[in-house]
Design a protein around this nucleic acid. Structure first.
Lengths: 147, 147
DNA sequence: GTGCGTGCAAATTCTTTGCAATGCA
DNA sequence: TGCATTGCAAAGAATTTGCACGCAC
C-alpha cells in the first residue's frame, strides 16, 4: 500500500489527515527495516519534534487496522511494524542487517491441507515469516571472505 | 517433548529439578491452549501457592531455551507459550476455543524457493502459524446449525 | 463552528534485577 | 556442604488512559 492508497483509506473512513499522521506514515513507509513504536517516535520527532508518543501508538494501531503496516514476530521485538505493500504478503527478515522485504508468492495450500489432515482443523488463516540473509549481506560476506 | 525428556534435558545441563520447575512444567505441558506468563503463574499457584512470578518467568525462558515450549504470535498476546511436542513443529490455533495443536508435516521448501527468487534472500529459517477451527468446534457449530 | 485528534502527565501493566535465604544434588 | 535457585521488593520499560486545547474539515 503506498502513501496515496493509505491516505485514501483514511479519508474513506471519514478520518482526518493530520500532520502527525502524515509524518508517522512517511516514516513507516520509507523504512526498509522493522520499527518499534519507540523507533518510529524517535524518527518522527526529527521532522516533527512536538509529536507525542501517544499519537504514534494510536497512529500505528490505526495503520495496522487498515492494513498499511504488518507486525513481525521476533524472539524479542514482537510488536515491531513493517510497511505492508501487498494486501496479502509475508515478511522476509534479514538476520544480518535487519532489512525486511515482502514476498507474495505464497501458496500454503499444500501445507494447510497437510495440517488439516494431521490435526482435523479447518484452516482459515496463516502467519508466515521467513528469516534469511539479504542479497547485500550475502555479497558483503563474500567480499570479506575473498579480501 | 514429554515430561521425562524435558527433565532429562535439564539434568543434562547440570540444572536442578526443583519443585517450582516441576510445577511450571506440569502446567505448561498439560495445557492445550496458549498461556501467558501470568496465566502460568496463576495456574502454578493453585498447586504451589508460594511460587514467585519471577520464577515463572525464569522457568519459561529456560523451557523455551531447551525447546520444550514454543511462542505463538497473536494480535495481542505475542508472548504466550505452548508446549512443543516435536523438535520442529508449528502451532495451529483454534480461533473459536483457543485450543492449540501442533503439526509437523511442514515442507516450506517450495515457498522458501519462491521467496528466495522473489527477494534474493538466502532463506535460513521460518516461523509459520496456522489459525482455524478445531474438529470439536466444527462439530459444535454443526450441531447448533442442525438443532 | 464542530468535533476529531493531539499532547501532556499520570496510571497501569508486564518484565527484569539485586540480594539474602533456601534447598537440591 | 556448595552453589544453583528461589522469592521478595523495587526498579525499569512499554503501553494506555483522562482531559483540555487546537486544528482539519
Amino acid at each position: 500500500m503506498d502513501r496515496t492508497a493509505v491516505e485514501g483509506a483514511l479519508v474513506a473512513r471519514g478520518l482526518r489527515l493530520t500532520r502527525q499522521r502524515r509524518a508517522v506514515l512517511a516514516v513507516v513507509l520509507d523504512s526498509s527495516s522493522q520499527l518499534s513504536a519507540l523507533q518510529v517516535y524517535d524518527s518522527v520527532r526529527t521532522v516533527l519534534p512536538e509529536v507525542g508518543l501517544t499519537t504514534v501508538y494510536r497512529t500505528l494501531a490505526l495503520l495496522e487496522e487498515i492494513g498499511a503496516v504488518r507486525r513481525v514476530h521476533g524472539d524479542e521485538a514482537c510488536e515491531s511494524v513493517v510497511p505492508a505493500a501487498a494486501a496479502h504478503g509475508h515478511s522476509v527478515v534479514c538476520d544480518t542487517c535487519g532489512l525486511v522485504e515482502e514476498f507474495t508468492a505464497c501458496d500454503i495450500s499444500p501445507i494447510a491441507a497437510a495440517a488439516a489432515s494431521e490435526t482435523g482443523y479447518a484452516i482459515t488463516d496463516h502467519f508466515l515469516q521467513l528469516t534469511g540473509t539479504c542479497a547485500a549481506c550475502i555479497s558483503d560476506a563474500g567480499e570479506k571472505a575473498v579480501g
